[in-house]
């Protein structure tokens, strides 16, 4: 969070840096939980699923820590302009990451149930959606970390792509659900999982929007006009 220039108060600089490091750490934990949950599903690996569920607690703890640090910075230094936008945006990114990790945990719980039953081939069909969503999460965090507004502004299209694949896969699973009544519960769980992945894509969009606001002070949420890059 530096601009090649330093705060007169060195501690302010250090506290801002710590806040950013903590939210990025949170981001890497949340991404790992998502990866473990989806790999647990595809590979029918209950151990990986359990890890995603247990490790969600690390993300919860970091959310509380980031909130506390953000509030402390506001109370102690009364940040303004870029600094204020960065603190507030970081706290919002943290909230999105916490929800993201919760969804990863939900995926893992459903994946455990699916793994306990006879294998269904459709689980592998989720892989392309997972790749898109995981890529969106990674790139949104990268854009936030680097203050890369240009990349952050591409998320509308990415979200449309995710939504389209989500609808496609949902349709296929629903069709299988109608045809194969022996696995009804598994297909319902799979439908939920696809929905969770789509929601995670929305969180990536939120993070990208926060990245844009943090850097450019332009609020692009809900169809707001994009800043010039």
């Amino acid at each position: 969070m530096t601009d090649g220039s330093n705060h007169i108060l060195k501690q302010f600089e250090a506290d801002l840096q710590k806040l950013k490091t903590d939210v990025l750490t949170m981001g890497s934990h949340a991404q790992e939980n998502l990866r473990n949950a989806v790999n647990g599903l595809i590979n029918r690996d209950v151990e990986l699923c359990n890890r995603a569920i247990v490790d969600d607690e690390d993300v919860d703890r970091l959310e509380i820590q980031v909130d506390r640090e953000g509030m402390m910075i506001i109370a102690k230094y009364s940040p303004v302009a870029r600094d204020l936008r960065r603190v507030v945006s970081t706290m919002k990114v943290s909230q999105n990451l916490e929800r993201l990790s919760d969804q990863a945990s939900n995926i893992a719980k459903r994946a455990r149930k699916i793994a306990a039953n006879a294998e269904i081939p459709e689980t592998i069909a989720l892989q392309p959606l997972f790749e898109l969503v995981a890529g969106a999460v990674r790139d949104s965090l990268e854009a936030f970390s680097r203050g890369d507004v240009k990349t952050a502004l591409t998320f509308d299209e990415r979200d449309e792509e995710i939504d389209s694949i989500y609808k496609d896969i949902s349709k296929k699973i629903t069709k299988r659900l109608e045809q194969d009544t022996t696995h009804t519960k598994d297909y319902v769980d799979l439908l939920f999982i696809v929905r969770f992945l789509e929601r995670i894509g929305d969180y990536a969009v939120n993070i990208a929007e926060d990245a844009v606001y943090s850097e450019s002070a332009v609020d692009i949420r809900h169809g707001g006009t994009h800043p010039k890059v």
Partner: peptide, 19 residues
């Protein structure tokens, strides 16, 4: 001015930064 200063020097001053 305090949320989105347009001038870099204004931003540096109100944020308490060195140039």
């Amino acid at each position: 001015l305090f949320m989105n200063p347009k001038n870099e020097q204004t931003a540096m001053y109100i944020e308490g930064r060195y140039g």
